[in-house]
Design a protein around this nucleic acid. Structure first.
Length: 501
RNA sequence: GGGGCGUUAGCUCAGGAGGUAGAGCAACGGCCUUUUAAGCCGUGGGUCACAGGUUCGAAUCCUGUACGCCUCACCA
């Protein structure tokens, strides 16, 4: 801590002591207000100067002092309720001496209540003429600069509270996030879905291919995994007769951090019986349109350098997409090429991607898709029919058993959702798990674990079911035009600071 | 984990051919009863991220470390 910082703190502590000497209660228990600042703006924002003169409007409200403009015997100050700002005007000849003394001891950042009548200044600004001032809490540390705010990204994430105090846009992002979740929940509830909570700590990490976090339960003396997906539990509930279930909650994956990945992230995952993945394509499209209508009021919005239009959806099979977006010299690939390793090898050579002889045709096709197509999918695009090796929990296509009924939704070059017709044949599921185990033994750390109880559940019979997961953080990125996932997570994971000072 | 870039006052930023640091805001002391980036006069405030090295001399050059950002890999 620098000596300046200490000095600023000392000055504020001294003022706080002086306030107490004046008989001010330093930490009052509550404050009864007549309106929040936002309510004052809403209700009286349209009133003219004359209306205030003819019909006196008294208010009692509170907020944090954001700025003080002092004239000796009078002062203007701006207070904020976290969302909106309101100016008050305090004059020496209107309040009593003690109140004015108290005001003079108040710093930017302190939390105060004011009571008085509303008027408009000669520049037309809605203002409270203060008659009573209430001290509510002390701010001992200086706030960041008033017009640049706080821009240091590290500080903004580590001290999100400060970020919220001085950067109103941050508040808006998280309000939008809340509205997105609310509207998704409404969408599902209106369609008879039941919200459930399934375990976050799993003895077997299943439902996705990802590396888990490991923790330990002392009493049971067992290792547990933070869940990588709720999928297998939600499907157990479908077996139990909960035909439409959903969960909105965190998943944890022990993998890289980037502008699109945080180790803990929020998914809405939902399952509906007697449906297949085609039903969910329509369902998803409808959901995104509704969320946009409710949250943004429009279906077109900017995302970075792109303009996204939620009225323009496209559906392509994974292989069609590779063909469509293939822009290398020579002929485009043909549909049959993806089953022929030699042809695939040629495609890898043409596109300059490193070819791995040991991978299956399906995996290679998946790699081609990621390399050639993914980043180009700006308007909403549903990519369907995935190679079976990539999808151990989805149902095979009837006419093409090495592909499964699965789709992913891409918007703005990001994978937003993942859905499939759920595999409900317990014998097939067991085979798939065994297949994954082989991959695990071969060194694939992300291969799926065997889950005997899940097989057992399927043995009781699961109706034909379709399920989907949507990444809430990424949807929020889209709807708030945020280029980093950390902008839409209040407290993103950062390495703890080491004290070097 | 690899590569690139960054870290200077509480905040936002200048500066830097090597000669011990500047501005605005914030703070402090004055003046000021309709300002709103209020204004005017004055004052204080820095181990230039940390640790080494080169040098007569390092904020500046070199090396390492920490943290962050971007990017690649892995993934959603």
């Amino acid at each position: 801590m620098g000596s300046l910082e200490e000095k600023l703190l000392e000055q504020r502590i001294k003022k706080f002591e002086e306030l107490k000497e004046l008989g001010v209660e330093p930490y009052p228990n509550k404050f009864e207000y007549s309106h929040t600042i936002s309510q004052i703006l809403e209700r009286f924002g349209g009133f003219s100067s004359r209306e205030f003169e003819e019909n006196e409007k008294r208010v009692k409200t509170a907020g944090r002092i954001m700025a003080i403009r002092s004239f000796g015997k009078a002062s203007f100050a701006t207070i904020s309720d976290g969302k909106h700002k309101l100016q008050f005007y305090i004059k020496k000849n209107v309040v009593d001496d003690k109140t004015f003394k108290i005001f003079k001891l108040i710093d930017i950042g302190d939390i105060v209540g004011v009571e008085g009548r509303l008027f408009r200044t000669k520049t037309g600004e809605l203002t409270v003429l203060v008659e009573k001032l209430y001290f509510l809490s002390k701010c001992f540390l200086p706030l960041p600069e008033k017009w640049h705010g706080l821009t240091d990204i590290e500080l903004r994430y580590r001290q999100r509270y400060l970020d919220l105090i001085v950067n109103p846009k941050v508040r808006e992002i998280f309000e939008t996030r809340s509205n997105i979740i609310k509207s998704i929940r409404n969408f599902l509830e209106e369609r008879d879905y039941i919200e459930v909570e399934t375990p976050m700590m799993h003895a077997i990490a299943g439902g996705a291919t990802a590396r888990p976090f490991v923790t330990h339960h002392n009493t049971l003396d067992i290792d547990l995994y933070l869940r990588i997906a709720p999928e297998l539990y939600l499907k157990r509930l479908v077996v139990g007769g909960m035909e439409r279930v959903y969960e909105i909650n965190r998943n944890f994956r022990n993998e890289g951090i980037s502008t699109r990945h945080n180790p803990e992230f929020t998914m809405v995952e939902f399952y509906q019986a007697y449906s297949d993945y085609k039903d969910l394509m329509d369902f998803t499209e409808e959901m995104f349109k509704e969320v946009a209508d409710v949250v943004l009021g429009v279906r077109k919005f900017k995302f970075g350098e792109y303009e996204i239009d939620l009225d323009k959806w496209e559906r392509l099979s994974l292989r069609e997409a590779i063909i469509k977006y293939w822009d290398f010299e020579g002929d485009k690939p043909k549909f049959e090429d993806f089953k022929d390793k030699e042809k695939l090898k040629r495609l890898f050579e043409i596109s300059g991607i490193e070819f791995d002889e040991d991978l299956s045709e399906g995996k290679l096709t998946g790699i081609l898709f990621e390399e050639v197509v993914e980043k180009k999918l700006i308007n909403p695009t549903i990519i369907y029919d995935y190679p079976i090796e990539l999808s151990p929990l989805s149902k095979k296509k009837k006419d093409e058993p090495d592909y499964v009924e699965r789709f992913e939704l891409y918007i703005g070059g990001m994978e937003i959702a993942n859905a499939y017709s759920e595999l409900n044949d317990p014998f097939d599921q067991k085979e798939r798990f065994l297949q994954q185990l082989k991959m695990k033994e071969a060194g694939d750390e992300e291969a799926h674990m065997m889950d005997e109880d899940y097989i057992n559940a399927l043995m009781y019979g699961m109706p034909p079911t379709a399920g989907e997961g949507i990444g809430i953080d990424r949807v929020t990125m889209l709807f708030t035009n945020s280029q980093s996932i950390r902008e839409v997570i209040l407290f993103p994971l950062l390495r703890p600071e080491k004290k070097t000072k």
